[in-house]
C-alpha cells in the first residue's frame, strides 16, 4: 500500500480524538451511573464497594420501598407533568400567535412590543419574584399549580416568540396572499396555514421551554411548596433534606428523579439536538 504513511498519520489522529471524546463521555456519565447502580444495593454493599455492580447478594430495593412509602413521588411526578405540559401548550400556542401578530401586521407599538418581549430573553423572570409572590397571594393562587403555570408561560414566551418569528418570516408571502385573495379570514390563515408550517420550529421551542420548567426549583419552592403541589424537583430536594443520612433512600430518590428524564432524553435526543444545533438559535 503506497499511501500507508499518510493513512497511518490519520489513523493516529483519529484514535487520539476518540480517546479524548471517550474519556470525556465517561467523565460525563460515570457520576450518574454510580448513583443509579448503588440505588439497587443494600446499605452494606453501598459502602463496602461503591463501584461494584449489584450482585445477587447485594441487590436490594429497600431504598425504593422507603422512598415510595414516605413520600408521594407519584404525586410529585404528576404535578411536574401537569405543570410542564400545560405551560408548554400555552407557550407554544400563545407564542406562535404573538409571533404571527408581531411579524405579519404593521401597527402602532409593534416595535415597542417586540423589544419588550425580546428583553425577556435576557432578563431572568426570577428577579421579579418578590412581586410575583405578592401578586399570587392577592390572586389567592399561592400553593396552586396554576401559579406555576402562569409564571412559566411568562418565562417561556419571549424565547418562543423570538424563534417562531424567525420561522414565520421565512414562510413564503405567496401562500398568505393567495389565501387572502380567496377571502380566507386572518384566523383561518394562521391556524390552517401558518401553524402547520412552523411545526418543526415548535419542536425546538418545546425543548427550550420544557427543560427549565421541569428542572426548576425556585418557583416551586416559593410559590407552591405545599405538600400536594410539590413538583418532582422540589419533592426530591425536600425529601433528601429530611433523610440525608439514609443512603438507600437518598440514592433511590435521586434515581427516581433521574431515570425518567434520561429515558425521555434518549428517545427524543435526536430531535432535541437538531433543535439545539439548528440555525434558528443564533
Amino acid at each position: 500500500m503506497i499511501s500507508l504513511p499518510g493513512l497511518k498519520h490519520n489513523t493516529g489522529k483519529t484514535l487520539m480524538t476518540h480517546a479524548v471524546l471517550l474519556t470525556y463521555t465517561v467523565i460525563a456519565l460515570f457520576p450518574i451511573l454510580v448513583i443509579i447502580v448503588n440505588a439497587f444495593k443494600s446499605r452494606k454493599a453501598i459502602f463496602k464497594d461503591p463501584l461494584a455492580l449489584p450482585t445477587l447478594d447485594s441487590f436490594s430495593l429497600e431504598g425504593f420501598e422507603q422512598v415510595l412509602g414516605r413520600a408521594d413521588f407519584g404525586l410529585y411526578f404528576g404535578n411536574s407533568m401537569i405543570v410542564t405540559l400545560v405551560s408548554l401548550f400555552f407557550v407554544l400556542l400563545l407564542g406562535a400567535m404573538a409571533a404571527w401578530a408581531l411579524t405579519e401586521y404593521k401597527f402602532r407599538g409593534n416595535l415597542f412590543l417586540a423589544v419588550l418581549i425580546a428583553m425577556g430573553i435576557m432578563i431572568p423572570i426570577r428577579l421579579g419574584t418578590v412581586s410575583i409572590l405578592n401578586l399570587m397571594a392577592s390572586l389567592d393562587l399561592v400553593n396552586t399549580l396554576t401559579a406555576l403555570v402562569l409564571v412559566y408561560i411568562a418565562q417561556g414566551l419571549p424565547l418562543a416568540v423570538f424563534i417562531l418569528s424567525e420561522f414565520i418570516r421565512q414562510v413564503p408571502k405567496e401562500l398568505k396572499e393567495a389565501a387572502r385573495c380567496d377571502n380566507v379570514s386572518e384566523y383561518k390563515i394562521f391556524f390552517t396555514i401558518i401553524l402547520p408550517l412552523i411545526r418543526p420550529a415548535m419542536a425546538t421551542v418545546a425543548v427550550f421551554t420544557m427543560i427549565p420548567i421541569w428542572n426548576d426549583l425556585w418557583f416551586p419552592l416559593i410559590l407552591a411548596p405545599g405538600e400536594s403541589t410539590q413538583t418532582i424537583t422540589l419533592g426530591v430536594q425536600q425529601f433528601i433534606g429530611q433523610y440525608v443520612t439514609d443512603w438507600n433512600a437518598v440514592l433511590s430518590s435521586l434515581t427516581l428523579a433521574i431515570v425518567p428524564v434520561l429515558v425521555l432524553y434518549v428517545i427524543f435526543s435526536r430531535q432535541l439536538i437538531r433543535g439545539l444545533t439548528s440555525g434558528a438559535v443564533k
Binding site: M1, I2, S3, G6, L7, N10
Partner: peptide, 12 residues
C-alpha cells in the same frame, strides 16, 4: 486526490 485533500485508495 491530486490536491491531496483526499487519500488515494490505490494507484500512484
Amino acid at each position: 486526490l491530486i490536491a491531496g485533500l483526499e487519500d488515494i485508495s490505490s494507484g500512484e
